[in-house]
């Protein structure tokens, strides 16, 4: 079914791993001169991912292409930088998507079912104007679609029949892209115990590349003093409403308390924030804040509800542009405080 050219295109496939194994490729030989091109390509893959966010598809030899992918993964695992791993996984996944969308349905079906274990059926259906090539099992569909935010991916906007969701060829490729990203991320998360001597210099070089393109590891933490100006519109609105003596419903109160706790506001301060409430009871508020903070009751420390939940409960308020990029008010705060303190987002090469 798959040719060696296919394995070069999709080196994350199970068949590609088999191919590498059959070659008897071992870490110890990695420094041998004939592996030079493989190491170079592995490094280039990383650099392309870090610099452009996309890995090219123009390698000289198929076997170099197939072999270099696990080496990139290995190096990344040894570098041990989460943000670099994420960027690499995304870049390789995008590359796969661009190639996959042009494949025949047979090949897409093979990869989806063999490598990712999807249950899917071949279709040849035109409903209004759109051609559907596949019907994907609901759980396989949802597993990937929940990461995609355009309305066309929401289940309500899909055609579903007997537990199978219709998708076009392009859409199948896009869903597989999500699988690829998750798979690569998982692979590079398990580094070997120690750095093989032969790889030492390559790993150091890769570390240099990460710093070159992603900047010095920021280890950016939330500001130690809460920054009101970095809070999302919903949270600010909750605070304003309380200050104006308006009633804030349970979900709103919970959101505010859990948000403030999670950005490191002290319990005293939080209790104070609720003081203007018309039905304020210090004892009750303190108890609830301690509960949310995990010091009472079930000992679960609560995090702030997701934006989707806040929308359902009418707590979401005048979302702004930054809101489009996040799914939880806490992420908004993290991003905004970075922007405001000039510490992040812009990652200029140094």
């Amino acid at each position: 079914m798959l040719t060696r050219a296919d394995l070069a295109k999709y080196p994350f496939l199970a068949e590609a791993s088999d191919y590498v194994r059959e070659l008897g490729f071992s870490i110890d030989e990695i420094a041998a001169p004939e592996f030079g091109p493989v190491l170079d390509r592995a490094e280039k893959r990383l650099e392309e991912a870090l610099s452009k966010g996309q890995v090219s598809n123009d390698s000289i030899s198929e076997s170099t292409e197939i072999l270099s992918f696990p080496v990139s993964n290995l190096i990344l695992g040894l570098v041990g930088e989460e943000r670099a791993r994420r960027r690499f996984a995304l870049a390789e996944a995008k590359r796969a998507y661009e190639l996959l969308r042009q494949e025949t349905p047979e090949k897409i079906e093979h990869i989806a079912s063999k490598t990712f274990g999807w249950k899917l059926k071949r279709l040849d259906v035109r409903l209004v104007r759109r051609f559907y090539d596949f019907a994907v099992n609901l759980t396989d569909y949802l597993h990937n679609s929940i990461h995609l935010r355009e309305p066309r991916w929401s289940l309500s906007n899909r055609v579903m029949d007997q537990g199978f969701v219709y998708v076009t060829r392009e859409e199948a490729a896009r869903l597989i892209e999500e699988e690829v990203r998750a798979r690569i991320l998982e692979r590079s998360s398990k580094p070997p115990g120690e750095i093989p001597r032969q790889l030492g210099s390559r790993v150091e070089r890769a570390r240099g590349l990460v710093i070159k393109w992603l900047g010095v590891p920021a280890h950016y933490e939330l500001p130690s003093v809460p920054m009101p100006e970095a809070m999302p519109p919903c949270v600010r609105h909750l605070i304003d409403s309380l200050n104006e003596g308006k009633n804030v419903q349970h979900m709103g109160r919970f959101t505010l308390a859990s948000f403030l706790l999670n950005i490191g506001t002290g319990e005293e301060e939080i209790v104070k924030a609720f003081k203007p409430a018309t039905d304020f009871s210090e004892r009750m508020t303190r108890y609830q804040v301690e509960h949310i903070g995990g010091r009472r009751g079930g000992r679960t420390k609560y995090t702030c509800p997701m934006c989707t939940t806040l929308k359902t409960h009418g707590v979401c308020y005048k979302p702004d542009e930054l809101c489009d990029t996040i799914r939880n008010p806490l992420s908004y705060y993290k991003k905004k405080s970075r922007i405001l303190t000039n510490k992040g987002l812009k990652r200029e090469p140094s």
Binding site: V128, N137, T139, I146, P151, S154, N157, V159, M160
Partner: peptide, 28 residues
């Protein structure tokens, strides 16, 4: 199958049953 899915997937299922977020133009 469905027993294993998480909260976000179940939210999609609930929205589907409710027809929530359904846009006729996305149904062509």
């Amino acid at each position: 199958d469905l027993g294993l899915v998480g909260e976000e997937e179940r939210r999609e299922i609930a929205n589907y049953v409710l027809g929530q977020g359904l846009e006729p133009e996305l149904h062509e």
